[in-house]
């Protein structure tokens, strides 16, 4: 995002809207200034700050900076065709069967809540998880960031790009899930950002949730609120 110096009247209304504190007040010049290294191209200032002089504008973004917008602005359709930062995961599992019985879906989102991350931290976490033999979800936009998705090595020249958040998403077996969670907990201490972690599964025939059992048995606490797919989609997946 850019500020047109000629137009900016120095009201600084946009400053508080920025989720990553990339906009600052230049009181000497009487203008708002955007730190391009910090800006994640989420578009919040342009959409919501109601700039009275239309001084904010979005220039065309070249590679690799375009990644910032793709991973930060949910209004942009990604190359995967999915808006947002992840996949349909739990939301359509009743018709896709993405997580069949016996499997646990895990998603680890770096930079959330509200702090942002550099893609280099994604690489660090990816390498740790891949060493356990899991495979990343192909439809998640992070999949395309890797030069080699079996090692977790990022494409050249993108590690320093900053985004609001990015998700590593995969499924694993119920047996392997505890080890994956422990590895995630360990690598979470090594990155320079926050990480939110999700765990999902299909309900068992007796109504219990294997994902919750796996988490509790591994010593992880679960929040009381979360997301439930009601099974109203058609055609309902068999089995």
């Amino acid at each position: 995002m850019r500020v047109d110096d000629e137009s900016c009247i120095g009201c600084f209304n946009c400053v508080a809207y920025c989720p990553v504190e990339a906009i600052r007040e230049d009181n000497q010049a009487g203008k708002a200034v955007i730190d391009e290294a910090k800006c994640v191209e989420c578009g919040v200032c342009l959409r919501s700050a109601d700039c009275p002089s239309d001084a904010l504008y979005q220039p065309e973004l070249a590679w690799p900076r375009i990644l910032r917008a793709e991973f930060s602005n949910p209004a942009i359709a990604l190359s995967t065709g999915v808006t947002g930062r992840g996949t349909e995961e739990t939301k359509t599992n009743d018709v896709t069967g993405r997580y069949p019985r016996g499997y646990i879906g895990i998603a680890t989102e770096l930079g959330r809540p509200g702090t942002g991350t550099c893609l280099g931290d994604i690489e660090r976490v990816a390498r740790a998880i891949l060493s356990l033999g899991v495979h990343f979800e192909k439809e998640n936009p992070t999949y395309n960031l890797f030069e080699d998705v079996t090692t977790g090595n990022l494409r050249e020249g993108i590690a320093e790009e900053r985004v609001l958040s990015a998700i590593l998403e995969f499924k694993t077996t119920e047996e392997k899930a505890p080890e994956v969670l422990k590895t995630l907990a360990k690598v979470a201490k090594e990155v320079n950002t926050v990480i939110t972690v999700n765990i999902a599964s299909r309900f068992a025939p007796d109504g219990s949730l294997p994902a919750a059992r796996v988490a509790r048995e591994g010593g992880f606490s679960i929040r009381p609120n979360g997301k439930s797919n009601l099974g109203l989609g058609l055609p309902l997946i068999k089995g």
């Binding site: 201490k189 939110t196 299909r202 606490s221 009601l230």
Partner: peptide
């Protein structure tokens, strides 16, 4: 219900 997703909270920094 068919599937559920739980949050394990915030880790890291």
């Amino acid at each position: 219900r068919h599937t559920a997703q739980c949050s394990l909270g915030v880790w890291g920094k």
